[in-house]
Amino acid sequence: MDQTLILWIIIGMWAVSFLPRMLPLQLLSGRQLHPLFAAWLKLVPAAVLPAILVPLVLLEKGAGGELHFNALFLIVTLICFPLAAKYKSLSLPVVLGMVLVAAGRWFFPA
């Protein structure tokens, strides 16, 4: 691949990632937000994280872009989730999840 083009893509990605992070803090910091908007913003993390996670563990993209049900990821998620909740741990589901997925593929090769 053309590395110069990739560099320009990365610079573009930087611009569109940095501005949405920076502008709200510059424009809003210290201002009193409308209570309804503030209450809505408090729910954003609880919304955005599952919106990414659930499709990620339920659906797998095949070689041609077609979607398959991902049983292994779902089972591993169902094991990791209660354990992560019990120990309030960010790293436990990462490490345990990878071990279980690796083990699942070893014992049940597709």
Binding site: A46, F81, A84, S89, L90, P93, V94, A102
Partner: peptide, 20 residues
Amino acid sequence: PLGLDFALAGMFIGLIVLQV
């Protein structure tokens, strides 16, 4: 085979548990 493709999902599980 190393389960590395689950790493991102694992991190999101941990984040949800902290946030929700």
